[in-house]
Amino acid sequence: MRIPFIKMHGLGNDFVVVDGRTEPVPPLGTSTRAALADRHTGIGCDQLILLEPSDAADLRMRIFNPDGQEASACGNAARAVGLLAGQATSIETKGGIIHARRDGGGVAVEMGHPRFDWQDIPLAYPMDTAAMPVGWEDLQSPAAVNVGNPHVVFFVDDVAGVPLHRLGPIVERDPLFPDAVNVSVAQITGPASLELRVWERGAGLTRACGTGACAAAVIALRQRRLASPVAVSLPGGTLHITWHGDGLITMTGPAAETFRGSFELEDYL
């Protein structure tokens, strides 16, 4: 059975989008999802995105990391889906309902409200998520927030000097984070700008992470380090994050369709 797909990306964070809104897609098991994401023997992507009908929104977006496991949210994928929809769209995700709309040459996504309580991250035990009394080697005193998925952010003097490829997986799987966690290092570069690198839970180092940009900007704004909107510079490009302390997070940035194709399901079973 051949299944069509759309290859898309947001700032180099790339996706294989399978659209099952009008024609149901056969179940794609964990091993099949991982095989499709493999860059050497599959199509290759940072996340596999499955679109389905929704009773609660215009469509449902399911997100799967390269290991085949399901994720709760992905801001860059939401922009790609918003571009694909071509109009203002409500999107049901595992992390809640979000809204996307075209904005000039890009896509703006309302990512919902940030959650700061330790139970909402979640953490293994109570602590102040604004100044966590924990650390891993030179990464100390992070802050945590849930923006549809859990993030922990360390503010550092030089993001390039942090061995995130080594420390990222250590922090991600620390017992402090029962559901694992996305790990970011952020460097303030101006009154309304920061530079960011992200180790994504279940995916590893990434060129861009939309929820990571939201998390770092919201924490910086909460700590009064920056003014909104915040320009977040990632290896793949820049996202603009707006948040005013008691409202929704809005993320704006580019998305693009790369090509379309199809795959034989039996080749990936």
Rank of each mutant, 00 (worst) to 15 (best):
41 T>A: 15
83 L>R: 14
1 M>V: 14
34 A>L: 00
76 N>T: 13
4 P>A: 04
103 D>G: 07
262 S>T: 01
128 D>W: 09
251 M>S: 00
47 Q>C: 03
10 G>W: 04
269 L>T: 15
196 L>K: 05
49 I>R: 04
46 D>T: 00
82 G>F: 01
61 M>D: 04
122 P>L: 01
118 W>T: 04
169 P>T: 03
24 P>D: 10
219 I>M: 04
138 D>F: 14
123 L>R: 08
123 L>D: 05
158 D>W: 10
4 P>C: 05
234 L>S: 08
6 I>M: 03
254 P>G: 13
53 P>Q: 09
195 E>N: 14
120 D>S: 15
213 A>V: 11
249 I>L: 09
78 A>E: 07
2 R>A: 13
159 V>E: 12
129 T>K: 02
152 V>R: 08
252 T>V: 13
138 D>Q: 15
208 A>M: 12
79 R>G: 05
144 A>Y: 06
67 D>C: 02
228 S>E: 13
68 G>S: 05
259 F>E: 04
44 G>D: 04
73 A>Q: 14
90 S>C: 02
150 P>T: 04
195 E>P: 12
31 S>R: 15
226 L>N: 09
76 N>S: 11
229 P>S: 06
95 G>R: 00
127 M>Q: 10
245 G>K: 01
25 V>E: 03
13 N>F: 11
234 L>D: 09
178 P>T: 06
70 E>W: 04
268 Y>T: 09
122 P>Y: 02
127 M>K: 00
157 D>F: 10
190 G>N: 08
129 T>R: 07
29 G>K: 03
131 A>R: 14
229 P>C: 06
262 S>R: 03
125 Y>T: 13
235 P>E: 01
263 F>H: 08
262 S>P: 00
234 L>P: 02
85 A>N: 00
257 E>F: 14
60 R>L: 06
128 D>M: 09
101 R>T: 12
221 L>W: 01
227 A>R: 15
259 F>C: 10
246 D>N: 12
23 E>V: 15
132 M>Q: 11
154 F>E: 04
33 R>I: 03
178 P>D: 03
215 A>D: 08
215 A>L: 08
246 D>P: 02
15 F>D: 02
117 D>T: 15
151 H>S: 02
61 M>N: 05
